[in-house]
């Protein structure tokens, strides 16, 4: 006896509905794989004083930090630089 497969054999939910149901039914479940957090780390670079002076000068001219000058230059050179590293995140004093 042949078993013919129906054209629409399942009332399976759409991907969006399945995601919505799963999230609502078990909202506290973790993802299967935790994304690796882009944590800060340190890069120490030994440069000539004249180079440091040139970078510092450019930073003052543009109202940027030294790190921003370096990171913007790297980004302009096509290196993938994290958005956070292009911002001025210098701690500010209150008051």
């Amino acid at each position: 006896m042949k078993t013919l497969k129906p054209r629409s054999s399942s009332n399976r939910p759409s991907p969006e509905t399945a995601l919505s149901i799963a999230t609502a039914a078990a909202p506290n479940l973790p993802p299967t794989q935790l994304g690796s957090e882009d944590r800060p780390s340190t890069l120490n670079v030994r440069l000539r004083s004249s180079t440091v002076a040139a970078i510092t000068s450019r930073a003052r001219e543009r109202g940027l930090t030294i790190k921003q000058v370096v990171c913007h230059a790297l980004a302009d050179a096509g290196i993938s630089v994290a958005e956070a590293d292009l911002e001025d995140r210098t701690p500010r004093r209150r008051g």
Binding site: R12, P13, P15, A18, A22, A25, L29, P31
Partner: peptide
């Protein structure tokens, strides 16, 4: 995966 996780829950919801 062998622990409660979102992908398994979605896979069970989408399953026949």
């Amino acid at each position: 995966a062998g622990f409660g996780n979102r992908a398994a829950t979605v896979a069970m919801t989408s399953a026949d």
